[in-house]
């Protein structure tokens, strides 16, 4: 039995210990937020927070997450009571297909938890591991700035 703490709740799970956290979240806990994108740690669609840090859940064995705090996009808020980042993404309509978005929000959450007012360069560097194919980047950046209380039209520092 593995005891996994997700979004503040403990779950006792009878799953093979090497199973990547992603599959446990999606199939055993029925949480849809984290997505399978590549299974190779290349795209970030599966990003969750583990002890506050952004992590690829597709490459994190569930046994390695046991005893630590896992947070998924479901833990940030709901449709009725969205969290700060979720509300910012809604306000900026920062999604097209949206498949990458839960991962984007979780990676951004890890940044804002550590650095509540990041610079534009810090935001872009931090978000670099996560891919969006629809080209929603500009709105995702706006949403992160909005959540951080920064002017939504961020400017890159002059080179």
């Amino acid at each position: 039995m593995i005891v996994l703490n997700v979004n503040g709740r403990d779950h006792s799970l009878d799953v093979p210990p090497e199973t990547p956290l992603l599959y446990v979240l999606r199939n055993d806990l029925q949480l849809n937020g984290a997505k399978f994108g590549c299974g190779l740690g290349q795209c970030g669609a599966c990003t969750v927070q583990v002890d506050g840090q952004a992590a690829y859940s597709c490459l994190l064995p569930v046994s390695a997450a046991a005893g630590r705090h896992v947070r998924t996009v479901e833990g940030l808020g709901t449709v009725e009571k969205p969290g700060v980042l979720q509300r910012a993404f809604e306000t900026e309509q920062a999604a097209q297909c949206g498949y990458c978005i839960a991962g984007m929000i979780m990676r951004a959450q890890a940044l804002l938890d550590a650095n509540p007012r990041p610079s534009e360069a810090q935001i872009r560097a931090h978000m670099q591991p996560n891919l969006c194919r629809c080209g929603t980047h500009m709105r995702i950046l706006r949403a992160i700035r909005r959540a951080a209380g920064l002017p939504p039209d961020g400017k890159m520092e002059a080179a």
């Binding site: 849809n32 937020g33 996009v73 449709v79 979720q86 809604e90 949206g98 839960a102 929000i105």
Partner: peptide, 8 residues
Amino acid sequence: IPAKLTGG
């Protein structure tokens, strides 16, 4: 969009 932001 709301469902996509919240894990629906």
